[in-house]
C-alpha cells in the first residue's frame, strides 16, 4: 500500500518540484509546531504568574539587562517570550484557518452540487447569492458577518465566542469559489452516461450526488481548499490586526502583529517582525502548495 503510494505520479511530481516539496515540508513543520506548542514552547505565554514585567522589551538573543534572562526571539512589552507566543499564535491561526476552510468547503460543495445537479430555480437562487457575494471583497463580508454576530451575542459571551464567530465569518465569506467550481463540474458529470446507468436502476438523486458525482469533483476541491486555507489565514490575521478577530487572551499571529505594531517606531522591531515573518511563510507555503496541486491536477493550465 505504502510502496504503491510512493510510486504514484503524485509523489513523483512532488519529489521533482522543489518549490512544492519545500512548501509541504514548511507547512508540515509549522503545523507540527502548532499542534505540539504546549510541549515545544519554553514558557506558557498565557500564564500571567510566569511573566515578569522586568523582562519587557528584551531583544532577541541578548540577555535582559535587569534579570539576565535570554529569549530566543526576544520578548514583548509585557516580558512575554515571543517564541512561545508565536507558537501559540500559530495554533490559533491554523485552527481558525482549517476550521473556516472546512466550513466553507462543506457549505460550498453542498450548495454547488445542489445547484449543478438540480438546476432550475435552485441553481438560479444559489448562484445569484454567490454572484452578489462575489462583488464584495471577502474581508468585507467577513467583517459584516462578524459585526452582526457580535450584535446578536450577549456581551458576556463575546469573548468566549470570539473564535467561533471568527470561523463563521471567514467560512461564510469563502464558500463561493467552492460552489462555483463544484457546480461547473457537476453539470459536466451529470450528463455523462454513468449517471443514466444509475438513474435507470432507480437510485435516488441524493445517492447519485453523494456516491457518483462527489468523488469526481473532489480534485479541484483539494486545490481550492489549499489556496483558500492561505486566504483564510490571511483573513484571520487581517481581522485580528483590525482588532475584531482573536481576543488578546487568545492571540493569533494577527493579534501579535497588531500588538507589535505599536513598538515598530520605538525600535523594538522584533515584536512585529517575527510574527509577521511566520505569517508570511505560512501563507506563502500553502499558496505555493496549492499552485502545485492545481498544476498537477490540471496540466493544461500551466
Amino acid at each position: 500500500m505504502i510502496a504503491r503510494w510512493l510510486d504514484s505520479d503524485f509523489v513523483y511530481s512532488l519529489l521533482r518540484t522543489p518549490t512544492a516539496l519545500i512548501s509541504l515540508i514548511i507547512c508540515l513543520v509549522l503545523a507540527a509546531c502548532a499542534l505540539f506548542a504546549p510541549w515545544i514552547a519554553p514558557t506558557d505565554p498565557f500564564d500571567m504568574s510566569s511573566i515578569d514585567l522586568m523582562n519587557g522589551f528584551t531583544p532577541p538573543g541578548v540577555a535582559n539587562e535587569f534579570t539576565g534572562e535570554q529569549f530566543f526571539l526576544g520578548s514583548d512589552d509585557q516580558g512575554r517570550d515571543l517564541y512561545s507566543a508565536i507558537l501559540y499564535g500559530l495554533r490559533v491561526s491554523l485552527f481558525v484557518g482549517f476550521a473556516s476552510v472546512i466550513l466553507a468547503m462543506t457549505l460550498g460543495v453542498t450548495l454547488g452540487l445542489l445547484a449543478g445537479y438540480l438546476g432550475g430555480w435552485v441553481d438560479a437562487v444559489i448562484m445569484r447569492i454567490a454572484d452578489i457575494q462575489m462583488t464584495f471583497p471577502s474581508i468585507l463580508v467577513a467583517m459584516l458577518i462578524y459585526g452582526v454576530a457580535r450584535g446578536i451575542l450577549p456581551p458576556n459571551a463575546r469573548a468566549d465566542m470570539a473564535i467561533t464567530v471568527l470561523i463563521l465569518s471567514i467560512g461564510l465569506s469563502e464558500w463561493v469559489s467552492f460552489a462555483r467550481t463544484v457546480r461547473g463540474t457537476t453539470i459536466v458529470e451529470k450528463q455523462k452516461e454513468y449517471i443514466t446507468a444509475s438513474r435507470l436502476i432507480g437510485l435516488s438523486h441524493l445517492n447519485i450526488m453523494a456516491r457518483h458525482i462527489l468523488p469526481n469533483v473532489i480534485n479541484p476541491i483539494l486545490v481550492i481548499g489549499t489556496i483558500t486555507l492561505a486566504l483564510a489565514i490571511i483573513a484571520e490575521a487581517t481581522l485580528s490586526f483590525l482588532g475584531v478577530g482573536a481576543p488578546p487572551t487568545e492571540p493569533s499571529l494577527g493579534t501579535l502583529i497588531r500588538v507589535g505594531q505599536d513598538f515598530l517606531f520605538s525600535g523594538q522591531w522584533w515584536i512585529i517582525f517575527f510574527p509577521a515573518v511566520t505569517l508570511l511563510v505560512l501563507a506563502l507555503s500553502f499558496n505555493l502548495l496549492g499552485d502545485w496541486l492545481r498544476d498537477f491536477y490540471n496540466p493544461r493550465l500551466s
Binding site: E193, Y194, T196, A197, L200, I201, P215
Partner: peptide, 21 residues
C-alpha cells in the same frame, strides 16, 4: 423500483458510461 430490474442499458461511450472513480 422493482419494475426497473427487467430493464437495462448499454451505452455508446465506453469512457463516459463507467464512473472513473
Amino acid at each position: 423500483k422493482e419494475n426497473r430490474r427487467d430493464i437495462q442499458m448499454v451505452f455508446q461511450s465506453p469512457y463516459a458510461s463507467l464512473n472513473p472513480r
